[in-house]
Every structure is written in C-alpha cells, then in structure tokens.
Amino acid sequence: MQIRSGSSQNIAMPAPADPMLAQPWCVCRIVRETDDTFTLELKPQNRSGQMNFKPGQFNMLYVFGVGEIPISISGDPTQPRILLHTTREVGAVTRAMRQLKPGDVIGVRGPFGTAWPVDESEGADILIVAGGIGLAPLRPALYRILSRRDLYGRVVLLYGARTPADMLYRRELEGWRARFDLEVYATVDRAMSGWRGNVGVVTTLIPRAPFDPSSAVAFVCGPEVMMRFTVDELLKRGVQPHAIYLSLERNMKCGIGLCGHCQLGPLFVCKDGPVLRYDKLADWLQKWEA
C-alpha cells in the first residue's frame, strides 16, 4: 500500500492485486454438459494472462451487473491458460452465465481455497468418490494424478449420478474407463430403459472398490448427505479419518475469509476449505444446522 505523504489529497492507492477486484476473462465457449449443467471455458483477456491453480480451488465469477458466485475450477491445472468451470443453473447468476456468448467478458477473482492433497498423497492408493456435480471439483485432481501416474498406487474413480443422462464428461469418463491404470465405476440413482450399468447409490460401490484401505487416500465431493454416508462406508472399510478429504460448499460473498458467510463452526470454508480433512470436520458435519 503506497501513501503519498505530504499530498494534500490524502489518497491511498489500493494494492495492485486486490483480491476483491475482478479480473476480466473472455468466454471461449459454453459447453452444455447435461440439461441443467454447463461448463464455462474461459481464456485470459491478454496474452500474458493465466491462472495457476491447484486442484480443488475455486474462483469467484462475476457477471457484469448481475452478481458473483463461487465455482470450483474443473479444468486441468497443468493448463493455466484455459480456465474451466462447471456449474449448474440454479439462480440468477448461473442463468445469466448460461446466456453468455463467446467473446463476452466475465470477472474472475481467485484462485481461492485449499486444494486436494495430490502431492502429499504420492505413494498411496487414491480413491475418488464423486456424486453428481461433485465430479467437477474432483476432475482437476484426477488430471493431476494422471499426469504423474507412476507416483501413485491404484487409482479408482467411483461416480454416482442421478440418471445416465445426468452424467458429466461422458466421453472423458469412457476414455478413463478404457485406461489400464485407472478403475472407473459408475452408478446411477435411476436408470432409463436400456441402461445396463449399475443402479444404486454411489456408496454401494465402496465395499467392492479395488483399493487398499490401509494405504489409501480418499477424495470425496458431492451433496453433503452423500458425503456423510460415503465417509461411513469408507470408515467401515478401514480408511483412516485423516486420509479422507471432502470438499464443502457454503454461501460466500468474499472468498477470502472476511465476510463471515461461509463459516462452519470455526472453519471458513473459503480459506480453511473448501477441501477439508475429515477428522478436522467430523464433529461439525454431524451438528445439524451448524
């Protein structure tokens, strides 16, 4: 912060990288993933722009004149010049986002928050459990793990969606399933006729998933109820509470721990999370309306 002393105007300039100021990014395209979910593909407005982010982090995205919301980054952390955010259309801001055209500009603040511990989990089996749109914040972790595949043991993805039509990244999922070094199991809550895959909640995939609980780290993301029951199943299989990570979601107005909205007990989901280790979270997750 510079203060021009002696100046009669007494004006101080804000710090250059003020985390409350939105940076402009261009909409490259908007990809329709399912009926109500879409992915925003953004690129920096100038040639030197990029966003170095860690898997699990989020941005605050601003639509001019409408509002701002937190959305997890769902792209590849090794490609910082392409910024992807997958979101559901649930309110005014996401509705406005859906209407954007290539070339439109969006305000971006971030990246904020804690990341999936991909570095710290080297050597372990990785179990990724995604429910619904929870696959979006997990995808960057999977990209990162696959980019250094030999540093990990078994890597297993369990994915639960509402129906086959609601599955995200379908083509990518099929590509992942085809790999020999990645196990992918998917299930749906509700099948359509002709579906010959699994039907049932994603927790039913856990007892049989091929990983070693004693040396596994689990990354879980989805609706909170789904995460709670997933953790139960993981604990039943012998995964340690300190080896389970969840990604939470709360109301956020600033993203930097100053507005108070995102608190869960003592934790600010925007800066102590959104990725949180289960043992630190356990008590608060069980308190209703905490």
Binding site: G131, I133, G160, R162, D189, G200, T204, P223, V225, M226
Partner: peptide, 15 residues
C-alpha cells in the same frame, strides 16, 4: 434399505 433411502432422497436433483 439404507441405500434405497439415499436413492429416494434424490440428492442430485436440481433444487
């Protein structure tokens, strides 16, 4: 039954 209950909650539905 437990699994069915979770299915019934339709957790991934758009609220």
């Amino acid at each position: 039954l437990s699994a069915m209950r979770l299915q019934l909650l339709d957790l991934y539905a758009n609220p």
